[in-house]
């Protein structure tokens, strides 16, 4: 009997303890949540103030913008996130509009130069043309452009930054995969101011004549990524990659 009775009261005690622990824990998490909410409210307020003070500077000053983007990524906030997640951030800073506007300008430049470069443009050239489009005070950096191109990805138009090696980057604006050989041709062309020929690829890259010819002919005839020159004194067929040529306009 004693053991049984003791068993019940022990059980009661145990239940009691569990109840109070649960109460305590929910009290604690309640406090934590309200604490967190207070912090968040504070953060938002500070951010709103920051944004309204620096909105213009974010839009106009490339290095400030870069620092701002870095700050965002270090605290895990995406200033471009849509309305569902952190959209207020984009609204507050106006960086969403800014970035999308830049995206439109990038598309503008890519489309208007596509005729002559076949949909492949040197990143530096793109930046130069976009900056010119934006007029004075509208400077953008490589970082800005790369970020904007990322926002264009969901459009499925094939906008992508391509690394062609040697620290050189190009922006592709057509849905077209560049194969490895084409990347090499573009890199070689860039070293020669846009000019590339079969012999050059054989000498510099150790390719066979057939491989070099096939890569160049594909770029010329199939993809429209290079132009033919038949009036060169040293070689009857010289290929020129317009996107690797330096155009002063």
């Amino acid at each position: 009997m004693h053991r049984f009775g003791g068993g019940i009261s022990a059980l009661e005690r145990h239940k009691q303890a569990q109840r109070s622990f649960a109460e305590l824990s929910s009290e604690i998490s309640q406090t934590q949540i309200s604490n967190l909410q207070a912090q968040l409210a504070h953060f938002r307020k500070a951010l709103a103030q920051f944004a309204s003070t620096h909105r213009d500077k974010i839009a106009k000053d490339p290095s400030f913008r870069h620092a701002f983007q870095q700050m965002c990524s270090s605290i895990g906030v995406d200033p471009l996130a849509g309305p569902r997640r952190g959209g207020w951030w984009a609204e507050l800073t106006g960086i969403g509009d800014w970035q999308h506007e830049l995206g439109v300008q990038i598309v503008d430049v890519c489309v208007s130069t596509r005729e002559r470069n076949g949909g492949l443009i040197d990143l530096a050239e793109l930046i130069r043309l976009v900056s010119r489009l934006r007029g004075p005070g509208g400077q953008v950096t490589e970082d800005d452009v790369a970020r904007s191109i990322k926002t264009l990805e969901p459009l499925g138009a094939g906008y992508q930054v391509v690394d062609v090696g040697g620290g050189r980057k190009m922006v592709r604006s057509v849905v077209k995969e560049l194969d490895d050989d084409q990347m090499v041709v573009i890199a070689v062309a860039q070293d020669g101011g846009g000019r590339v020929e079969v012999d050059g690829l054989v000498e510099k890259r150790g390719w066979t004549v057939e491989r070099a010819r096939a890569a160049l002919e594909n770029m010329l005839l199939r993809d429209g990524l290079c132009w033919l020159d038949e009036q060169d004194e040293s070689c009857p067929q010289v290929y020129w990659v317009p996107s690797a040529m330096q155009w002063d306009e």
Partner: peptide, 22 residues
């Protein structure tokens, strides 16, 4: 003269019809 006038391939008739159109 526009800058394309100093591009050597501008003076060659292009085998790619799209390029030649330009």
């Amino acid at each position: 003269l526009p800058s394309i006038h100093s591009a050597p391939p501008f003076f060659t008739q292009q085998p790619n019809p799209n390029t030649q159109k330009i």
